[in-house]
Design a protein around this nucleic acid. Structure first.
Lengths: 199, 199
DNA sequence: TTCTAAATAGAGCGTTCGTTTTAGTGGTGG
DNA sequence: CCACCACTAAAACGAACGCTCTATTTAGAA
């Protein structure tokens, strides 16, 4: 119908940005309405499930958004160690440019709703696992044994996640860049080089 | 300052536990009063600064609490790699026993208040840096060059931090244990304290 | 045009938030 | 005895919360 962004999409995008900056509890429905240039009525029309439903949609959106960035970094380099370095550099730059507020869109929401809301937590778990899977596939494609690749992929995602928080709190790119260098060293320590050619 | 479990201390301890489970925004002053077996009057008597002052005190308390655990793990092992392994094992066990809710006391509060409250953010930054310093001193004491030790210490704290979040979200000890094993491998890759003369 | 349903708009509900205010307690020194 | 103190207790405030509700506007089919 229209090439302009739909109201529903504006709500999701605004919610995702607010969620990553102020968390789930800290973000109000009315604030989402204001930021998305919509109204309460529209939000409850598209999301009868209320605030939690909006949050789940926003987290899934952020999931795909970061997955695209990660996939780009992984596909852009043959060496997985270089790919991780490139990824941390991109994240560090983005963090600095945003004034250290646009962190991981999942971590903030996840930590607040661990005990109660299972839908949000599930969406966060799905996001983390989808990112881990991207790293895992890259490593396996480079010839890493399945077991090593699994453990490495988990560690890479966790470390990047933690380094981003550290970088935000310290308002410095260094934790993220240091983690990237150390992760690259860790990956190289397995002595496996470039992706296997052919099938 | 005679009574061992003073009202002020009960407030701080209760606030710290609530903060690590529900974050800053998700924890109410009245809930802190209930959990600490005190009242609103008592809280505002001891903390005229209000909720933020209570949170800062609670974060500092949690800082020292985790620093003690970390120091215990570092002092209990000669090999820094083994020490990190021991630390992640303890954290994984504690996480499981708490039903995956007692995570890092700093991360949750830090992410919600990045843009606005500088006091809370500063307390979180201080905590992260104090923990990093403990790891740094251990590494330097084991003969690591200052530059490598610094970068390693940052990465270790960040990775443990991130792995704890991943473990919470996935309700599994595995991310934390995997991160411990990979961090140990990374530390050993420097070949310090190990009889292997490689590279 | 007329009808219908989707979409938008916002007043208002009950509740809870952080905070302020006032009152009251028990113990100590003059 | 009273004055004073640190501390406890609870009522009440304005603001904001998530959500429900009723209107109103819009877009397309008949």
């Amino acid at each position: 119908m229209q090439t302009e962004t739909s109201t529903r999409e504006r709500i999701v995008v605004a919610a995702a940005r607010l969620l990553q900056r102020q968390g789930y509890v800290g973000t109000g429905i009315k604030q989402i309405a204001t930021e998305s240039q919509s109204t309460l009525g529209s939000i409850y029309h598209f999301f009868p499930g209320g605030k939690e439903a909006v949050a789940v949609a926003a987290i899934r959106y952020s999931d795909q958004e970061f997955a695209a960035l990660l996939k780009g970094a992984l596909d852009g380099e043959d060496d997985p160690a270089e790919a991780v370095l490139s990824c941390t550099r991109q994240l560090a730059a983005g963090l600095r440019e945003s004034g250290w507020v646009d962190g991981c869109p999942v971590t903030a929401a996840a930590l607040e709703t661990l005990g109660a809301d299972s839908d949000i937590q599930q969406a966060c778990a799905d996001a983390l696992n989808s990112w881990e899977r991207l790293v895992l596939d890259k490593l396996v494609g480079c010839g890493f044994p399945a077991q090593d690749a699994r453990e490495l992929a988990t560690t890479v995602i966790s470390a990047v996640e933690g380094a981003e928080v550290t970088a935000q709190v310290n308002r410095s790119e260094e934790p993220l860049l240091a983690a990237g260098r150390q992760l690259a060293r860790l990956i190289r320590s397995y002595g496996i080089g470039s992706p296997r050619p052919g099938s």
